[in-house]
Design a binder for these strands. Structure first.
Lengths: 248, 248
DNA sequence: AAGTGGTCTAGACCACAGC
DNA sequence: CTGTGGTCTAGACCACTTC
Protein backbone atom coordinates (compact mmCIF):
# COMPACT_ATOMS: atom_id res chain seq x y z
CA UNK A 1 0.00 0.00 0.00
CA UNK A 2 2.49 2.62 1.22
CA UNK A 3 5.77 3.62 -0.32
CA UNK A 4 7.81 1.35 1.90
CA UNK A 5 6.80 -1.70 -0.13
CA UNK A 6 10.29 -3.08 -0.60
CA UNK A 7 9.72 -6.79 -0.11
CA UNK A 8 12.13 -8.62 -2.34
CA UNK A 9 10.54 -12.00 -1.73
CA UNK A 10 6.76 -12.00 -2.19
CA UNK A 11 5.97 -14.16 0.80
CA UNK A 12 2.52 -15.75 0.63
CA UNK A 13 -0.05 -13.84 2.63
CA UNK A 14 -1.08 -16.82 4.73
CA UNK A 15 2.53 -17.45 5.64
CA UNK A 16 3.06 -13.90 6.78
CA UNK A 17 -0.28 -14.01 8.59
CA UNK A 18 0.78 -17.14 10.40
CA UNK A 19 3.92 -15.55 11.78
CA UNK A 20 2.04 -12.45 12.83
CA UNK A 21 -0.60 -14.51 14.58
CA UNK A 22 2.03 -16.73 16.13
CA UNK A 23 3.77 -13.73 17.67
CA UNK A 24 0.46 -12.36 18.88
CA UNK A 25 -0.34 -15.68 20.51
CA UNK A 26 2.93 -15.59 22.39
CA UNK A 27 2.54 -12.05 23.61
CA UNK A 28 -1.10 -11.18 23.92
CA UNK A 29 -2.98 -14.36 24.63
CA UNK A 30 -3.15 -16.82 27.47
CA UNK A 31 -3.67 -20.54 27.12
CA UNK A 32 -7.35 -21.34 26.74
CA UNK A 33 -8.30 -17.85 25.68
CA UNK A 34 -10.70 -17.68 22.75
CA UNK A 35 -9.78 -15.78 19.60
CA UNK A 36 -12.14 -13.56 17.63
CA UNK A 37 -14.12 -15.53 15.08
CA UNK A 38 -12.73 -16.17 11.63
CA UNK A 39 -14.83 -13.61 9.82
CA UNK A 40 -13.75 -10.85 12.17
CA UNK A 41 -10.11 -11.90 12.07
CA UNK A 42 -10.13 -12.02 8.28
CA UNK A 43 -11.66 -8.54 8.11
CA UNK A 44 -9.17 -7.20 10.63
CA UNK A 45 -6.22 -8.42 8.56
CA UNK A 46 -7.82 -7.48 5.27
CA UNK A 47 -7.81 -10.94 3.75
CA UNK A 48 -10.41 -13.43 2.60
CA UNK A 49 -11.60 -15.93 5.14
CA UNK A 50 -10.07 -18.80 3.17
CA UNK A 51 -6.66 -17.18 3.47
CA UNK A 52 -7.07 -16.58 7.17
CA UNK A 53 -8.13 -20.19 7.56
CA UNK A 54 -4.99 -21.39 5.81
CA UNK A 55 -2.93 -19.65 8.47
CA UNK A 56 -5.08 -21.02 11.29
CA UNK A 57 -4.77 -24.52 9.88
CA UNK A 58 -0.99 -24.34 10.06
CA UNK A 59 -1.07 -23.07 13.61
CA UNK A 60 -3.45 -25.84 14.59
CA UNK A 61 -1.14 -28.37 12.94
CA UNK A 62 1.69 -27.04 15.06
CA UNK A 63 -0.37 -27.42 18.18
CA UNK A 64 -0.75 -23.70 18.83
CA UNK A 65 -4.50 -23.51 18.34
CA UNK A 66 -7.52 -25.65 18.89
CA UNK A 67 -10.64 -25.19 16.79
CA UNK A 68 -14.03 -26.63 17.50
CA UNK A 69 -17.02 -26.30 15.23
CA UNK A 70 -19.85 -24.39 16.80
CA UNK A 71 -17.63 -23.20 19.60
CA UNK A 72 -14.64 -21.21 18.44
CA UNK A 73 -10.87 -21.07 18.27
CA UNK A 74 -8.83 -21.22 21.46
CA UNK A 75 -5.17 -21.02 22.33
CA UNK A 76 -3.89 -24.55 22.87
CA UNK A 77 -1.77 -25.60 25.83
CA UNK A 78 1.74 -26.92 25.08
CA UNK A 79 1.77 -30.39 23.66
CA UNK A 80 1.63 -33.19 26.17
CA UNK A 81 4.52 -35.60 26.12
CA UNK A 82 3.27 -39.16 25.85
CA UNK A 83 5.69 -41.97 26.47
CA UNK A 84 5.93 -44.54 23.76
CA UNK A 85 7.98 -47.38 25.12
CA UNK A 86 7.27 -46.76 28.82
CA UNK A 87 9.37 -49.70 29.86
CA UNK A 88 11.48 -51.56 27.41
CA UNK A 89 10.33 -55.04 26.64
CA UNK A 90 6.85 -55.32 28.01
CA UNK A 91 3.78 -56.64 26.26
CA UNK A 92 0.83 -54.38 25.64
CA UNK A 93 -1.51 -54.68 28.56
CA UNK A 94 1.28 -55.12 31.07
CA UNK A 95 0.72 -53.58 34.48
CA UNK A 96 1.25 -49.86 34.38
CA UNK A 97 0.57 -49.05 30.76
CA UNK A 98 -1.83 -46.20 30.10
CA UNK A 99 -4.12 -48.01 27.71
CA UNK A 100 -7.76 -48.90 28.29
CA UNK A 101 -9.10 -51.99 26.52
CA UNK A 102 -12.28 -51.14 24.62
CA UNK A 103 -13.32 -54.40 23.02
CA UNK A 104 -12.03 -57.33 21.02
CA UNK A 105 -13.23 -59.39 18.11
CA UNK A 106 -11.85 -62.09 15.88
CA UNK A 107 -11.23 -61.15 12.28
CA UNK A 108 -9.45 -62.24 9.15
CA UNK A 109 -9.45 -58.88 7.44
CA UNK A 110 -6.09 -57.34 8.19
CA UNK A 111 -4.57 -54.38 6.40
CA UNK A 112 -1.97 -55.75 4.01
CA UNK A 113 0.82 -53.98 5.87
CA UNK A 114 -0.20 -55.64 9.14
CA UNK A 115 -0.56 -59.04 7.49
CA UNK A 116 2.98 -58.74 6.21
CA UNK A 117 4.39 -57.80 9.61
CA UNK A 118 2.48 -60.56 11.39
CA UNK A 119 3.38 -63.06 8.68
CA UNK A 120 -0.15 -64.41 8.58
CA UNK A 121 -1.50 -66.58 5.81
CA UNK A 122 -4.30 -65.08 3.68
CA UNK A 123 -7.61 -65.66 5.44
CA UNK A 124 -5.98 -66.51 8.74
CA UNK A 125 -7.99 -65.20 11.70
CA UNK A 126 -6.43 -63.13 14.46
CA UNK A 127 -7.59 -61.34 17.60
CA UNK A 128 -8.26 -57.65 17.15
CA UNK A 129 -8.18 -55.68 20.39
CA UNK A 130 -9.17 -52.04 20.39
CA UNK A 131 -7.68 -49.85 23.05
CA UNK A 132 -7.67 -46.16 23.79
CA UNK A 133 -5.28 -43.98 25.68
CA UNK A 134 -6.17 -41.01 27.81
CA UNK A 135 -3.80 -38.40 29.14
CA UNK A 136 -4.71 -35.29 31.09
CA UNK A 137 -8.46 -35.97 30.74
CA UNK A 138 -8.12 -36.03 26.98
CA UNK A 139 -8.13 -38.96 24.57
CA UNK A 140 -4.74 -38.90 22.88
CA UNK A 141 -4.56 -42.15 20.98
CA UNK A 142 -6.57 -45.02 19.56
CA UNK A 143 -5.06 -48.39 18.91
CA UNK A 144 -5.75 -51.51 16.92
CA UNK A 145 -3.82 -54.44 18.34
CA UNK A 146 -3.58 -57.55 16.20
CA UNK A 147 -2.61 -60.74 18.00
CA UNK A 148 -2.01 -64.11 16.39
CA UNK A 149 -4.76 -66.48 17.42
CA UNK A 150 -2.38 -69.38 17.95
CA UNK A 151 -0.27 -67.33 20.33
CA UNK A 152 -3.13 -66.30 22.61
CA UNK A 153 -5.95 -68.82 22.49
CA UNK A 154 -8.25 -66.70 24.58
CA UNK A 155 -11.93 -67.46 24.94
CA UNK A 156 -11.55 -71.15 24.31
CA UNK A 157 -12.69 -72.04 27.81
CA UNK A 158 -15.63 -69.67 28.20
CA UNK A 159 -17.06 -69.16 24.70
CA UNK A 160 -19.69 -66.49 25.23
CA UNK A 161 -17.30 -63.87 26.57
CA UNK A 162 -18.49 -60.35 26.07
CA UNK A 163 -16.30 -58.13 24.02
CA UNK A 164 -14.43 -56.26 26.74
CA UNK A 165 -13.80 -59.40 28.76
CA UNK A 166 -12.36 -60.98 25.66
CA UNK A 167 -9.98 -58.05 25.29
CA UNK A 168 -8.72 -58.61 28.81
CA UNK A 169 -8.36 -62.32 28.14
CA UNK A 170 -6.24 -61.76 25.03
CA UNK A 171 -4.02 -59.24 26.80
CA UNK A 172 -3.69 -61.57 29.76
CA UNK A 173 -2.63 -64.44 27.55
CA UNK A 174 0.08 -62.26 26.03
CA UNK A 175 1.75 -61.67 29.37
CA UNK A 176 2.49 -65.39 29.65
CA UNK A 177 4.69 -65.39 26.56
CA UNK A 178 8.37 -64.61 26.30
CA UNK A 179 9.07 -61.27 24.67
CA UNK A 180 12.21 -61.34 22.55
CA UNK A 181 11.99 -57.80 21.31
CA UNK A 182 9.99 -55.18 19.54
CA UNK A 183 10.52 -52.65 16.81
CA UNK A 184 8.64 -49.56 15.83
CA UNK A 185 7.92 -47.13 13.05
CA UNK A 186 6.45 -43.64 13.26
CA UNK A 187 4.82 -41.92 10.32
CA UNK A 188 2.26 -39.28 9.51
CA UNK A 189 -1.25 -40.33 8.63
CA UNK A 190 -4.78 -39.03 8.67
CA UNK A 191 -7.45 -40.21 11.04
CA UNK A 192 -9.93 -42.73 9.71
CA UNK A 193 -13.56 -42.00 10.51
CA UNK A 194 -13.55 -44.35 13.49
CA UNK A 195 -10.29 -43.05 14.94
CA UNK A 196 -11.50 -39.51 14.51
CA UNK A 197 -14.58 -40.19 16.60
CA UNK A 198 -12.48 -41.78 19.30
CA UNK A 199 -10.01 -38.89 19.30
CA UNK A 200 -12.69 -36.21 19.23
CA UNK A 201 -11.48 -34.87 15.91
CA UNK A 202 -12.81 -34.61 12.38
CA UNK A 203 -12.00 -37.35 9.88
CA UNK A 204 -8.75 -36.69 8.11
CA UNK A 205 -7.16 -34.97 11.07
CA UNK A 206 -3.39 -35.44 11.14
CA UNK A 207 -2.21 -38.27 13.36
CA UNK A 208 1.10 -39.85 14.22
CA UNK A 209 0.85 -43.53 13.41
CA UNK A 210 3.07 -45.72 15.58
CA UNK A 211 3.37 -49.30 14.41
CA UNK A 212 4.92 -51.72 16.87
CA UNK A 213 5.78 -55.32 16.19
CA UNK A 214 6.22 -57.72 19.11
CA UNK A 215 8.42 -60.76 18.60
CA UNK A 216 8.34 -63.91 20.70
CA UNK A 217 10.64 -66.88 20.11
CA UNK A 218 11.77 -65.42 16.83
CA UNK A 219 8.25 -65.01 15.51
CA UNK A 220 6.03 -61.92 15.15
CA UNK A 221 3.16 -62.45 17.58
CA UNK A 222 1.43 -59.12 17.78
CA UNK A 223 1.29 -55.85 15.87
CA UNK A 224 -0.07 -52.65 17.35
CA UNK A 225 -1.14 -49.72 15.19
CA UNK A 226 -1.55 -46.70 17.45
CA UNK A 227 -2.76 -43.38 16.11
CA UNK A 228 -1.91 -40.35 18.22
CA UNK A 229 -3.41 -36.89 17.79
CA UNK A 230 -0.63 -35.03 16.01
CA UNK A 231 -1.85 -31.63 17.10
CA UNK A 232 -1.74 -32.24 20.83
CA UNK A 233 0.87 -34.97 21.28
CA UNK A 234 4.63 -35.14 21.43
CA UNK A 235 5.89 -38.70 21.46
CA UNK A 236 8.73 -39.32 23.88
CA UNK A 237 11.31 -42.07 23.78
CA UNK A 238 13.54 -42.53 26.76
CA UNK A 239 13.53 -40.80 30.11
CA UNK A 240 12.34 -37.34 29.17
CA UNK A 241 8.64 -36.74 29.34
CA UNK A 242 7.19 -33.78 31.10
CA UNK A 243 8.90 -30.69 29.71
CA UNK A 244 6.95 -28.89 27.02
CA UNK A 245 8.80 -28.43 23.76
CA UNK A 246 7.93 -26.60 20.59
CA UNK A 247 10.77 -27.26 18.24
CA UNK A 248 9.59 -26.08 14.86
CA UNK B 1 -31.02 -33.14 -6.63
CA UNK B 2 -32.44 -36.51 -7.65
CA UNK B 3 -34.85 -38.73 -5.76
CA UNK B 4 -32.23 -41.26 -4.71
CA UNK B 5 -30.69 -38.86 -2.18
CA UNK B 6 -30.76 -41.29 0.71
CA UNK B 7 -27.32 -40.77 2.21
CA UNK B 8 -27.70 -40.91 5.94
CA UNK B 9 -24.27 -39.48 6.61
CA UNK B 10 -23.48 -36.50 4.36
CA UNK B 11 -19.82 -37.31 3.92
CA UNK B 12 -17.82 -34.31 2.72
CA UNK B 13 -17.15 -34.36 -0.99
CA UNK B 14 -13.40 -34.08 -0.61
CA UNK B 15 -13.40 -37.06 1.74
CA UNK B 16 -15.32 -39.21 -0.66
CA UNK B 17 -13.13 -37.98 -3.49
CA UNK B 18 -10.06 -38.94 -1.56
CA UNK B 19 -11.17 -42.55 -1.12
CA UNK B 20 -12.15 -42.79 -4.77
CA UNK B 21 -8.80 -41.43 -5.87
CA UNK B 22 -7.00 -43.63 -3.39
CA UNK B 23 -8.63 -46.74 -4.82
CA UNK B 24 -7.87 -45.58 -8.34
CA UNK B 25 -4.23 -45.07 -7.41
CA UNK B 26 -4.01 -48.64 -6.15
CA UNK B 27 -5.64 -50.19 -9.17
CA UNK B 28 -5.00 -48.06 -12.20
CA UNK B 29 -1.76 -46.24 -11.67
CA UNK B 30 1.87 -47.24 -11.38
CA UNK B 31 4.44 -45.54 -9.18
CA UNK B 32 5.82 -42.48 -10.89
CA UNK B 33 2.92 -42.15 -13.30
CA UNK B 34 1.61 -38.63 -13.75
CA UNK B 35 -2.03 -37.81 -13.06
CA UNK B 36 -4.19 -35.53 -15.18
CA UNK B 37 -3.86 -31.92 -14.14
CA UNK B 38 -6.02 -30.48 -11.39
CA UNK B 39 -8.40 -28.58 -13.66
CA UNK B 40 -9.15 -31.68 -15.69
CA UNK B 41 -9.54 -33.88 -12.64
CA UNK B 42 -11.90 -31.41 -11.00
CA UNK B 43 -14.02 -31.26 -14.15
CA UNK B 44 -14.07 -35.03 -14.44
CA UNK B 45 -15.37 -35.42 -10.91
CA UNK B 46 -17.71 -32.47 -11.18
CA UNK B 47 -16.25 -30.47 -8.31
CA UNK B 48 -14.51 -27.15 -7.93
CA UNK B 49 -10.77 -27.18 -8.15
CA UNK B 50 -10.42 -26.15 -4.52
CA UNK B 51 -12.34 -29.23 -3.46
CA UNK B 52 -10.26 -31.49 -5.64
CA UNK B 53 -7.15 -29.92 -4.17
CA UNK B 54 -8.34 -30.67 -0.64
CA UNK B 55 -8.45 -34.35 -1.54
CA UNK B 56 -5.05 -34.24 -3.23
CA UNK B 57 -3.56 -32.51 -0.19
CA UNK B 58 -4.66 -35.35 2.04
CA UNK B 59 -3.25 -37.95 -0.29
CA UNK B 60 0.03 -36.08 -0.45
CA UNK B 61 0.10 -35.90 3.35
CA UNK B 62 -0.30 -39.66 3.46
CA UNK B 63 2.57 -40.10 1.06
CA UNK B 64 0.48 -41.36 -1.82
CA UNK B 65 1.09 -38.45 -4.17
CA UNK B 66 3.85 -36.04 -4.98
CA UNK B 67 3.05 -32.61 -6.40
CA UNK B 68 5.51 -30.22 -7.97
CA UNK B 69 4.68 -26.76 -9.14
CA UNK B 70 5.18 -26.30 -12.84
CA UNK B 71 5.49 -30.05 -13.35
CA UNK B 72 2.49 -32.02 -12.23
CA UNK B 73 1.19 -34.61 -9.80
CA UNK B 74 2.75 -38.05 -9.74
CA UNK B 75 2.11 -41.27 -7.86
CA UNK B 76 4.59 -41.48 -5.01
CA UNK B 77 6.64 -44.55 -4.19
CA UNK B 78 6.08 -46.17 -0.77
CA UNK B 79 7.63 -44.24 2.07
CA UNK B 80 11.27 -44.91 2.74
CA UNK B 81 12.11 -46.20 6.18
CA UNK B 82 14.82 -44.09 7.75
CA UNK B 83 16.50 -45.35 10.88
CA UNK B 84 16.50 -43.01 13.80
CA UNK B 85 18.79 -44.50 16.38
CA UNK B 86 20.99 -46.54 14.00
CA UNK B 87 23.12 -47.85 16.81
CA UNK B 88 22.21 -47.22 20.38
CA UNK B 89 24.52 -44.85 22.19
CA UNK B 90 26.60 -43.20 19.56
CA UNK B 91 27.29 -39.51 19.14
CA UNK B 92 26.14 -37.71 16.03
CA UNK B 93 28.92 -37.85 13.48
CA UNK B 94 30.03 -41.30 14.55
CA UNK B 95 31.31 -43.54 11.80
CA UNK B 96 28.47 -44.98 9.78
CA UNK B 97 25.77 -42.41 10.32
CA UNK B 98 24.02 -41.14 7.21
CA UNK B 99 24.41 -37.45 7.89
CA UNK B 100 26.46 -34.97 5.87
CA UNK B 101 27.89 -31.98 7.71
CA UNK B 102 26.99 -28.77 5.91
CA UNK B 103 28.56 -26.05 7.99
CA UNK B 104 28.99 -24.78 11.51
CA UNK B 105 28.92 -21.46 13.27
CA UNK B 106 28.97 -20.19 16.80
CA UNK B 107 25.79 -18.60 18.09
CA UNK B 108 24.03 -17.52 21.23
CA UNK B 109 20.53 -17.43 19.77
CA UNK B 110 18.96 -20.73 20.69
CA UNK B 111 15.27 -21.54 20.50
CA UNK B 112 13.97 -21.44 24.05
CA UNK B 113 13.10 -25.12 23.96
CA UNK B 114 16.67 -26.00 23.01
CA UNK B 115 18.12 -23.68 25.63
CA UNK B 116 16.06 -25.45 28.26
CA UNK B 117 17.19 -28.90 27.16
CA UNK B 118 20.84 -27.87 26.96
CA UNK B 119 20.59 -26.02 30.25
CA UNK B 120 22.51 -23.07 28.89
CA UNK B 121 22.65 -19.69 30.53
CA UNK B 122 21.01 -16.81 28.64
CA UNK B 123 23.53 -15.42 26.14
CA UNK B 124 25.78 -18.45 26.37
CA UNK B 125 27.34 -19.30 23.01
CA UNK B 126 27.23 -22.80 21.56
CA UNK B 127 28.32 -24.52 18.38
CA UNK B 128 25.62 -24.87 15.76
CA UNK B 129 26.29 -27.59 13.21
CA UNK B 130 23.99 -28.00 10.24
CA UNK B 131 23.74 -31.41 8.70
CA UNK B 132 21.61 -32.98 6.02
CA UNK B 133 20.59 -36.53 5.39
CA UNK B 134 20.09 -38.15 2.02
CA UNK B 135 18.43 -41.46 1.33
CA UNK B 136 17.77 -42.98 -2.05
CA UNK B 137 19.09 -39.90 -3.90
CA UNK B 138 16.59 -37.72 -2.06
CA UNK B 139 17.11 -35.28 0.80
CA UNK B 140 15.01 -36.60 3.65
CA UNK B 141 16.04 -34.56 6.65
CA UNK B 142 17.75 -31.38 7.77
CA UNK B 143 19.27 -31.02 11.19
CA UNK B 144 20.40 -28.31 13.55
CA UNK B 145 22.83 -29.72 16.08
CA UNK B 146 23.57 -27.59 19.11
CA UNK B 147 26.73 -28.48 21.04
CA UNK B 148 27.88 -26.87 24.25
CA UNK B 149 31.03 -24.87 23.55
CA UNK B 150 32.72 -26.03 26.74
CA UNK B 151 32.19 -29.67 25.82
CA UNK B 152 33.76 -29.42 22.36
CA UNK B 153 36.30 -26.58 22.21
CA UNK B 154 36.83 -26.96 18.48
CA UNK B 155 38.65 -24.36 16.44
CA UNK B 156 40.73 -23.13 19.32
CA UNK B 157 43.95 -24.30 17.73
CA UNK B 158 43.38 -23.16 14.16
CA UNK B 159 41.13 -20.10 14.36
CA UNK B 160 40.38 -19.38 10.71
CA UNK B 161 38.72 -22.70 10.02
CA UNK B 162 36.26 -22.59 7.19
CA UNK B 163 32.72 -23.51 8.04
CA UNK B 164 32.60 -27.10 6.92
CA UNK B 165 35.95 -27.89 8.51
CA UNK B 166 34.65 -26.45 11.73
CA UNK B 167 31.66 -28.77 11.54
CA UNK B 168 33.94 -31.76 11.26
CA UNK B 169 36.03 -30.47 14.14
CA UNK B 170 33.03 -30.15 16.45
CA UNK B 171 31.74 -33.59 15.54
CA UNK B 172 35.20 -35.05 16.01
CA UNK B 173 35.51 -33.51 19.45
CA UNK B 174 32.20 -35.09 20.44
CA UNK B 175 33.45 -38.61 19.76
CA UNK B 176 36.05 -38.19 22.49
CA UNK B 177 33.41 -37.75 25.20
CA UNK B 178 31.64 -40.41 27.19
CA UNK B 179 28.01 -40.85 26.16
CA UNK B 180 25.80 -41.66 29.12
CA UNK B 181 22.55 -41.78 27.23
CA UNK B 182 20.12 -40.01 25.00
CA UNK B 183 16.43 -39.38 24.86
CA UNK B 184 14.13 -38.34 22.06
CA UNK B 185 10.84 -36.78 21.18
CA UNK B 186 8.93 -36.92 17.90
CA UNK B 187 6.29 -34.40 16.97
CA UNK B 188 4.62 -32.87 13.95
CA UNK B 189 5.82 -29.50 12.72
CA UNK B 190 5.94 -27.43 9.59
CA UNK B 191 9.08 -26.71 7.65
CA UNK B 192 10.72 -23.34 8.21
CA UNK B 193 11.77 -21.53 5.07
CA UNK B 194 15.35 -22.75 5.35
CA UNK B 195 14.42 -26.36 6.04
CA UNK B 196 12.00 -26.28 3.15
CA UNK B 197 14.71 -25.24 0.75
CA UNK B 198 16.99 -27.99 1.99
CA UNK B 199 14.22 -30.59 1.73
CA UNK B 200 13.05 -29.46 -1.69
CA UNK B 201 9.60 -28.57 -0.40
CA UNK B 202 7.53 -25.44 0.04
CA UNK B 203 7.62 -23.59 3.37
CA UNK B 204 5.07 -24.96 5.79
CA UNK B 205 5.31 -28.50 4.45
CA UNK B 206 4.60 -31.06 7.17
CA UNK B 207 7.69 -32.47 8.83
CA UNK B 208 8.42 -34.88 11.62
CA UNK B 209 10.58 -33.09 14.16
CA UNK B 210 12.89 -35.39 16.09
CA UNK B 211 14.58 -33.79 19.07
CA UNK B 212 17.43 -35.74 20.60
CA UNK B 213 19.29 -34.85 23.75
CA UNK B 214 22.74 -36.31 24.35
CA UNK B 215 23.94 -36.64 27.92
CA UNK B 216 27.53 -37.01 29.03
CA UNK B 217 28.62 -37.36 32.64
CA UNK B 218 25.13 -36.50 33.78
CA UNK B 219 24.98 -33.28 31.81
CA UNK B 220 23.21 -32.40 28.57
CA UNK B 221 25.97 -31.77 26.05
CA UNK B 222 24.25 -31.68 22.70
CA UNK B 223 20.75 -31.32 21.32
CA UNK B 224 19.84 -32.26 17.77
CA UNK B 225 16.68 -30.99 16.10
CA UNK B 226 16.12 -33.05 12.97
CA UNK B 227 13.25 -32.33 10.61
CA UNK B 228 12.23 -35.19 8.33
CA UNK B 229 9.92 -34.88 5.34
CA UNK B 230 6.66 -36.26 6.67
CA UNK B 231 5.30 -37.11 3.24
CA UNK B 232 8.12 -39.39 2.16
CA UNK B 233 9.59 -40.70 5.40
CA UNK B 234 8.74 -43.38 7.88
CA UNK B 235 10.91 -43.24 10.97
CA UNK B 236 12.08 -46.62 12.20
CA UNK B 237 13.23 -47.55 15.68
CA UNK B 238 14.83 -50.91 16.17
CA UNK B 239 15.77 -53.58 13.68
CA UNK B 240 13.06 -53.17 11.09
CA UNK B 241 13.79 -50.85 8.24
CA UNK B 242 13.30 -51.84 4.67
CA UNK B 243 9.72 -53.08 4.36
CA UNK B 244 7.26 -50.52 3.06
CA UNK B 245 4.30 -49.85 5.30
CA UNK B 246 1.20 -47.80 4.87
CA UNK B 247 -0.65 -48.04 8.13
CA UNK B 248 -3.30 -45.35 7.96
C1' DA C 1 -32.43 -18.53 16.92
C1' DA C 2 -27.82 -16.95 16.76
C1' DG C 3 -23.06 -17.70 16.21
C1' DT C 4 -19.27 -20.67 15.37
C1' DG C 5 -16.13 -23.34 12.37
C1' DG C 6 -16.43 -26.62 8.05
C1' DT C 7 -17.45 -27.21 3.15
C1' DC C 8 -17.92 -25.69 -1.52
C1' DT C 9 -18.04 -22.76 -5.59
C1' DA C 10 -16.31 -20.16 -9.85
C1' DG C 11 -13.53 -17.47 -10.90
C1' DA C 12 -8.67 -14.71 -11.07
C1' DC C 13 -3.84 -14.20 -10.97
C1' DC C 14 0.99 -15.73 -9.67
C1' DA C 15 5.39 -18.63 -9.60
C1' DC C 16 7.74 -22.06 -11.68
C1' DA C 17 9.41 -25.80 -15.09
C1' DG C 18 10.19 -27.05 -19.60
C1' DC C 19 10.23 -26.42 -24.24
C1' DC D 1 5.63 -19.28 -24.62
C1' DT D 2 2.52 -22.93 -22.55
C1' DG D 3 1.03 -25.73 -18.88
C1' DT D 4 1.47 -26.94 -14.22
C1' DG D 5 0.50 -26.42 -9.29
C1' DG D 6 0.13 -22.46 -5.59
C1' DT D 7 -2.34 -18.43 -3.85
C1' DC D 8 -6.32 -15.55 -3.19
C1' DT D 9 -10.99 -13.74 -3.46
C1' DA D 10 -16.11 -13.00 -2.27
C1' DG D 11 -19.56 -15.17 -1.65
C1' DA D 12 -22.92 -19.17 -0.29
C1' DC D 13 -24.58 -22.82 2.43
C1' DC D 14 -24.05 -26.60 5.98
C1' DA D 15 -23.20 -28.82 10.69
C1' DC D 16 -22.71 -28.05 15.13
C1' DT D 17 -22.93 -25.85 19.86
C1' DT D 18 -24.97 -22.83 22.91
C1' DC D 19 -28.45 -20.04 24.71
Amino acid sequence: MGITQLETAPEPKYWHLKTVLSDALDKEFAVGEILPNERDLAARFGVARATLRQALEQLELEGRLQRRRGVGTTVAPPRVGVAVEPARHTWPGAAGDDWQPVDAIETDELPTAVARLLETAPGEAVHLVRRSRVSAQQPVAAELLYVRADAAPAGADAPPLDSVARAHAVLGALQELDLDGQDRTVELGSARAEDARQLDRLPGAPVLVVTTRYVSRGRAVAVAVSTYRADTCRLTFGERETEPLLAS
